[in-house]
């Protein structure tokens, strides 16, 4: 069941660490990692960049350096390779960059076309070539991939998964106090269960369900 997205306030679109340009670059990368599918929004609609922004200004402050230096390096790389900024590349070019630094979508399928890169000898390595720190870029893209997954599937309180669209995509009902015997029958269509979040649960704390509706009937 779709979650009401109208409550997402524009107040939450502010940034706590990134510059506007850095945020737009991360958003563009995250959106290639999890793109929209026509029905469900992708990383951009889920607000993944806001999850990442809050994560690195709080819990993961140790990763600020990776993002700051890595994004700077990415611009050097894109300037040398495409004479353009990452955000202005077309989706195919963006995917090509991601392939260079994360690897093929499916490991070992060799979609990676290193002949397209002026740095082909070094593109897959951890070293530095022609003034570009490939090791740093590999690290940053690995972090962004992991952060994108977290930001897409986290509880919306963390800034990502807005309107629970990540949970809608995969059919996860989120925060449920319990599941009944009926709901646990094989083949039950769990998309009938309204998705709930931690905020929904907090609103219900004074009126919690009766646990007896969930546990088994005593013999």
């Amino acid at each position: 069941m779709p979650k009401d997205t109208s409550k997402s306030s524009s107040d939450l679109d502010a940034l706590t660490y990134f510059t506007d340009f850095q945020a737009r670059t991360i958003e563009a990368i995250a959106d290639r990692i999890i793109p929209a599918d026509g029905t469900h929004g992708g990383a951009t609609e889920a607000g993944v960049v806001y999850y990442i922004d809050r994560a690195i200004s709080g819990f993961s402050i140790g990763l600020q350096r990776v993002y700051r230096l890595g994004l700077r390096e990415l611009e050097h790389f894109c300037e040398r390779q495409f004479r353009a900024q990452f955000v202005d590349l077309n989706p195919e070019q963006q995917d090509q960059v991601i392939r260079w630094f994360i690897g093929d979508e499916v490991r070992g399928t060799n979609k990676l076309d290193r002949t397209q890169s002026p740095f082909r000898e070094m593109a897959a390595s951890e070293g530095t070539a022609e003034g570009i720190d490939f090791g740093l870029l590999h690290s940053m893209f690995a972090v962004i991939r992991e952060h994108t997954v977290e930001g897409y599937f986290c509880d919306p309180v963390y800034g990502g998964n807005r309107g629970a669209i990540g949970w809608q995509l995969v059919g996860f009902p989120g925060v449920q106090w319990g599941y009944t015997a009926e709901q646990m029958k094989p083949g039950f269509d769990a998309r009938q269960i309204p998705i709930k979040t931690l905020a929904d649960l907090r609103r219900e704390l004074n009126n919690l369900p009766d646990n007896a509706q969930y546990w088994i009937k005593p013999r």
Binding site: R32, I33, I34, P35, D37, H40, G42, D95, I98, I102, G103, E105, V106, R107, R145, V149, E150, F153, C154, G166, W167, L169, V170, F172
Partner: peptide, 22 residues
């Protein structure tokens, strides 16, 4: 939960992009 499953995906499944989402 979903993130745990992302970490448990088979090695021949896409790790990013439309294939990963699908």
């Amino acid at each position: 939960q979903p993130i745990e499953i992302v970490h448990a995906m088979p090695s021949n499944a896409p790790r990013w992009g439309a294939g990963f989402r699908d």
